[in-house]
Simulated scan of single mutants.
Amino acid sequence: MAMIERSDTGAVARLTLNAPERLNALSDAMMAGLLAELETLASQPHIRAVILAGAGKAFCAGHDLKEMTAGRSAEDGGRAYFGDLFARCGDLMMAIRALPQPVIAEVHGIATAAGCQLVASCDMAVAADGTRFGVNGVNIGLFCSTPMVALSRNIPRKQAFEMLTTGAFIDAARAADLGLINRAVPAGDLQQEAMELAQTVAAKLGGAVRIGKRAFYEQVEMPLEQAYLHTGEVMTQNMMFEDTAEGIAAFLGKRSPDWSQ
């Protein structure tokens, strides 16, 4: 059974975490499979948006604790394995950010620990009402230090710290209020809502969205003056696209653009 199932609808690729019996835990195989799919998508410009979902009753329950426990049997008590595991997990999260296409998390059931990190690492997220989010490793004595990197870049610091230190869960409505997800929707509408958002993005000029996504994450880490200088150069590059010239001409001519991409 493939750990990641992919299905395409036009310019939208849907990736489904496919280990429902383990609540789609981020096992070594799951992370490797997802990273491989992302690497493939990075070289497929005809795909303009990506949906990331989970099979079964949950989105993702975080790292595979049984697999992690087995890692302790090594001579060093698992230190090398754990170091490699968390490094690979970080690489996966950064690959989502580096992917040219926007990634939309379609979340249901639970998104806990590294599963919550996965949601926070996506560019956008839509969740079903009743979904529970948590960075609850502290409840078993393991502070969610790597998940807090993405979480603390999505929601206010004090709320992130409270979640990390109490292990408390929040629901989809609260996650939307805090900015962890874009919106909460009825469970029956989840797939449709995620697809409509993805198709809206996919209908835009692919080259413009790709250059814009990269610039979005670059500028947010810069001081204000540097950010304006950088994004001014990005917009200049964007203006030089032939398809951008066509888009402006189409707007002025009150017609649909005839883009080559």
Rank of each mutant, 00 (worst) to 15 (best):
A203S: 15
V209K: 04
A198R: 04
V234D: 10
E196R: 14
T200K: 15
G207F: 03
R210M: 07
Q191S: 12
G188T: 01
A187Y: 08
Q226C: 11
K213V: 02
R183W: 06
M240P: 06
V234L: 10
Q199F: 04
T244K: 00
A208L: 06
F241V: 02
R183K: 11
E246G: 00
T231P: 05
G247V: 04
F251S: 12
E218K: 08
Q199A: 13
E196T: 10
A227Q: 06
D189E: 11
F251Y: 15
F216H: 14
L205Q: 07
T244D: 09
H230Q: 04
A250I: 00
L229F: 12
A245P: 12
V234M: 12
M235Q: 01
Q226A: 15
E196G: 06
A203H: 13
G232E: 07
F251A: 14
L229W: 08
V234S: 02
K213C: 04
A250P: 11
A194V: 05
A184R: 13
E242M: 08
A203P: 08
E233P: 01
V209H: 03
R255F: 03
T236R: 13
Q237L: 04
A202F: 10
Q226R: 15
A202G: 08
E242H: 15
V201R: 08
M239V: 01
Y228D: 13
K213H: 04
E218C: 08
L252I: 03
M235Y: 06
Q226T: 15
L224A: 08
E225W: 00
V220A: 10
I211K: 09
M239R: 14
A208E: 07
R255W: 06
R210A: 08
K213L: 01
Y228K: 09
M235A: 07
N238C: 14
T231S: 15
A249K: 07
L197A: 05
M195G: 05
V220N: 11
G253T: 05
G247Q: 13
A215N: 09
E246H: 00
V201M: 07
R255T: 09
E221C: 11
Q226Y: 13
M240D: 15
Y228N: 11
V185L: 06
M239Y: 11
D243V: 02
R210F: 10
R183N: 13
V209A: 08
V209S: 04
L197N: 05
E193Q: 12
A194F: 03
G207Q: 05
T200R: 15
A249D: 11
L190W: 12
Q199L: 14
L229S: 10
R214F: 03
Y228P: 05
E233V: 03
A203V: 03
F251V: 12
V220T: 11
R210K: 10
E196S: 09
D189A: 07
E233L: 07
L229G: 13
R183D: 12
R210C: 02
V220S: 09
Q219C: 10
D189M: 02
M235K: 09
A227C: 05
M195N: 01
E193W: 05
Q226E: 15
A208T: 04
